[in-house]
Design a protein around this nucleic acid. Structure first.
Lengths: 107, 107
DNA sequence: CGTCATACTTCCAAAATGAAAGTACTGCCG
DNA sequence: CGGCAGTACTTTCATTTTGGAAGTATGACG
């Protein structure tokens, strides 16, 4: 399995990278993540469990029934990849305005 | 929608980035992609259609019933993101190995 | 005891994914 | 000409993942 396939095995599922991106701004609580990302609570719980098991984030107990989710070093190391993907999407918009790359049919 | 979400909308589905990674080595034929990636032919056809529609790759007619798939400029621009993800996964392995080996100062 | 707030779990439908078989086109052999 | 083989898909159907909505668990507060 290539490195890329290994990475996608961990953060390739839906919402995973978006959760990590949110946590790059600092620890967040469950309900805040759910509201900010606009995702279902069942999916969020599943992803948080997977990402914690993968060592990307960890739970921080705050108060009695409140906790925060914070990135580990491994999670923070995803910043480069997340920013690269974000730059790519931003470039697409720019390219659509400045350049037309329509392939030509040979016939 | 954030830049990251926009990027994942295009290349966030299963196999999409793996296909692009393979094409970074140069144009490939359908059957070669299928064999090298080990993915089903229905999924490959679906992904290639989507990625072509998104302007990430294009079809190059070769022979009578043979064609190649090649990255566009937009597709090649994904190299940074793909390499960043690959480096992240590789770092994970290094960390797992160095945990019970003699720690050495890097460079 | 009941109410509120937070963090989930459960249930079920819809969509995506995957394996296997089938289709369409065309060059080649006889 | 007809059948066989190679390439690029499509179709069918089962499995897995995702998503929406409602339900559960826990503990502070009164």
């Amino acid at each position: 399995m290539s490195d890329l396939a290994a990475a996608l095995d961990v953060v390739g599922s839906r919402w995973a990278l978006l959760i990590v991106e949110r946590l790059l701004d600092g620890p967040q609580r469950y309900s805040d993540l759910q509201r900010d990302l606009g995702m279902g609570t069942n999916m969020l719980a599943t992803r948080l469990r997977e990402l914690e098991a993968a060592g990307v984030l960890r739970r921080l107990p705050l108060r009695h029934n409140t906790r925060a989710y914070a990135l580990t070093d491994r999670g923070r190391a995803l910043r480069d990849a997340i920013e690269a993907l974000g730059r790519w999407a931003a470039e697409q918009n720019v390219a659509a305005h400045t350049r037309d790359e329509t392939p030509r049919e040979p016939g």
